[in-house]
Design a protein around this nucleic acid. Structure first.
Lengths: 159, 159
DNA sequence: GCGGCCATGAAAGAAGCTTTCATATATTGG
DNA sequence: CCAATATATGAAAGCTTCTTTCATGGCCGC
C-alpha cells in the first residue's frame, strides 16, 4: 500500500533505463543491464517497477506512415457552435472514435480544438473532411492546415 | 537486389504482426508467433524483414509525461519574416535542436509552422517562449495555444 | 511438367528470462 | 547509538525463448 502513495522518485539508474527504452523499446534485459551497469536480476526488477508504476505507459512499434498509405499529415483547427461543457463532451466523444485522428486537444485561443490527422492523400482528406469532420457534433467551422513538410514528428520526450 | 526495389507488399500476417507490435512493442517472438499462428522461426524472419524494410521505424517506450515533469502541452503557430527557402531552412535547423519541440511542421495557411511543445508548466513555457521561441531565426510572430485538455494524444496509427 | 525461387516449420545449441535466496544497505523507532 | 525492520542487490539455476541451420513443399515462369 505504501508504494502506491509514494511518488517513487527515480534515481540515475531508472532514468537511464527509461531513456534507453525510449530509444529502443526492444532492448533485452541483458543488454539493458549491461549498459546501465547493474545485474540482470536488478535490472529486471527495476524495469518491471517502471512499468507497474506507470512511468512507461506503453511500448509501441512506430509504423512508418508512408509505408502504410498514411503519408499525408493535416492539422485542423476546430471551432464549436457553443462553448458549453456538454457541447465539448459530445464533440470529444465523437472525435475519439475517428481512427485517423492522432491528436485532439482542447486549447485556449482562436480555436476550441486542434486535431492532427493522418490520411493517404489530399483526396482522401477532402472526402473525410466533408463526410466526417464538418459532420462532427457542434462544429461551427474548421480551418485546415496541410502539412507540406514534416520537420520533426513525434520526437522522443526529453527529461 | 530485387527486394530493395520491390514494394514488398504486406500480407495478412505481416499486418497482424505490425498491429500487435504497435500495441505492445515488447511482445516476445514466441507470443507473436502464437498469436498470428505461425512458427517462431517464420515469425522471427517476418518481423526482422519488417524492421529491415523500414515498416517499423523504431520501437519506443512511451514515457508518461506527467511522471517526468512534462505535463504541460502547448501548440504554437509561427510566422516567419520572409518566405524564402533559405529562411525556412535556417528556421528548421534551429528548431530541430530544441529538445522540448515534439512536432514541427511546415504548413499551408495562416502560419508557416506549427509546433507541439512539452514543458513542465506554464511558467516554464513562458520562460522558454521568451528566451528561445521568439529568438528563433526569422520569427515574425508566434501564436500560443495552451492545451487545456488532452483528449487524444499520439494515438496509434490505424492502417 | 520442370527447374528455380522463396517461404515454411522442425530441431537444437546458445542466449536470455525470471525466480529464489542469502547478503548488504538504508530507514525507522527507541 | 543501536536494534529492528524494510528494501535493494547479485549470484545461481531451472526454465523459456531466440535464432540459426536444414530439409521439405508450394508457386511461378518457361
Amino acid at each position: 500500500m505504501k508504494a502506491s502513495f509514494m511518488a517513487a522518485r527515480l534515481d540515475r539508474t531508472d532514468l537511464k533505463i527509461l531513456r534507453l527504452l525510449q530509444n529502443n523499446g526492444r532492448l533485452s534485459n541483458a543488454e539493458l543491464a549491461e549498459t546501465v551497469a547493474i545485474s540482470p536480476a536488478t535490472c529486471h526488477r527495476r524495469t518491471q517497477r517502471l512499468f507497474e508504476d506507470g512511468f512507461i505507459a506503453a511500448v509501441r512499434a512506430m509504423i512508418a506512415p508512408k509505408k502504410v498509405a498514411k503519408g499525408t499529415l493535416v492539422m485542423v483547427g476546430v471551432v464549436l457552435d457553443r462553448s458549453t461543457p456538454e457541447s465539448f463532451a459530445i464533440f470529444e466523444q465523437a472525435v475519439a472514435k475517428l481512427k485517423f485522428v492522432l491528436d485532439c486537444h482542447l486549447v485556449a485561443g482562436d480555436f476550441d480544438y486542434f486535431l492532427k490527422i493522418r490520411v493517404g492523400d489530399m483526396e482522401d482528406f477532402n472526402r473525410i473532411h466533408g463526410e466526417q469532420l464538418i459532420a462532427l457534433p457542434g462544429v461551427r467551422q474548421t480551418r485546415t492546415f496541410f502539412v507540406m513538410k514534416e520537420v520533426v514528428d513525434n520526437a522522443p520526450l526529453e527529461f
